[in-house]
Design a protein around this nucleic acid. Structure first.
Ligand SMILES: [Mn+2]
Ligand SMILES: [Mn+2]
Ligand SMILES: [Zn+2]
Ligand SMILES: [Zn+2]
Lengths: 141, 141
DNA sequence: GTCTTAATGCAATAATATTGCATTATTGCC
DNA sequence: GGCAATAATGCAATATTATTGCATTAAGAC
């Protein structure tokens, strides 16, 4: 569940078309160091001589998020390519405040604990979002 | 750490002025059922015959967040009045997808576990954000 | 290649956010 | 209470981000 090819496979398997714009956005997400906004993506592509309408980029990102091929990072509003498989539970992020590095992770135990906390309030948690902000291994040593 | 008065006290104690606009925004946050955006706040006040410039509202919300008198709910972009004290650790939310009800909570154990997870990746987590999305006690029965 | 239609592009518009500077109102002090 | 200092606000202009409807294009099936 990582490379661009996998994502294209998933698109196809769900009946979505594999289009040039979708491939371009996927490539940008793949190579991006950190989260990128729709307009970031447009600029990056422009620098490579490619042109995409921003509306198209919005719609593509919507779809990718729907299919869990990408995620919106709530802390910054940017988008990242999903790096994990489907079986691992909720996908979350650690973001380095120094270098911007972003790491996706998943943790079943954390999901459990969060569901339990919610239950204590009579709340049924269907989705768990969490993001950590701090210093990555490179920046804290 | 709840009423409007407490917030005003904190403002004063940190050397900020207690102004009419700040009181108005606090009142709106206090009464709001769920998260409200800057423009929501402006509209609500308008309906009560009060007028506030949106720039002012943005600046006030920035300040409130800085002082932890309010929080931005990442899932929806709206703002809520902080309902908890300072000692309880990270402040988090459960949002009902049905009625929009929002509940702030804090959980030391969760903080611990999250820090441990981060540590396993060599990451030093300074802030933890999390939000649950699901059904509140009213809506899931 | 042709056909079908999902996907894209475009134009217009809406909504949200930011900046610099003039004006106002809060606070501390007399 | 009045006055001065200045933090806070309002305003205008602008920038950025997001959404909608419809015409056009190109992906996939045959
Ligand atoms: Mn993921
Ligand atoms: Mn709080
Ligand atoms: Zn780093
Ligand atoms: Zn509910």
């Amino acid at each position: 569940m990582s490379g661009v090819e996998d994502s294209l496979r998933i698109l196809r398997s769900k009946g979505y078309r594999v289009t040039q714009p979708r491939k371009l956005v996927l490539k940008v997400l793949e190579r991006a160091e950190g989260p990128v906004s729709p307009y970031d993506i447009q600029k990056i592509l422009q620098q490579e001589g490619e042109r995409l309408n921003h509306v198209t980029i919005y719609r593509i990102l919507d779809l990718f998020c729907l299919l869990n091929l990408a995620h919106k990072v709530l802390l910054c509003g940017g988008f990242v390519k999903c790096a994990l498989g489907k079986r691992e539970g909720c996908h979350r992020f650690m973001v380095c405040r120094q270098c911007g590095a972003l790491r996706e992770f998943a943790d079943k135990a954390l999901c459990e604990e969060e569901s339990a906390i919610a239950r204590d309030f009579g709340f049924v948690a269907e989705h768990h979002f969490s993001e950590f902000f701090g210093l990555c291994s490179n920046c804290n040593s």
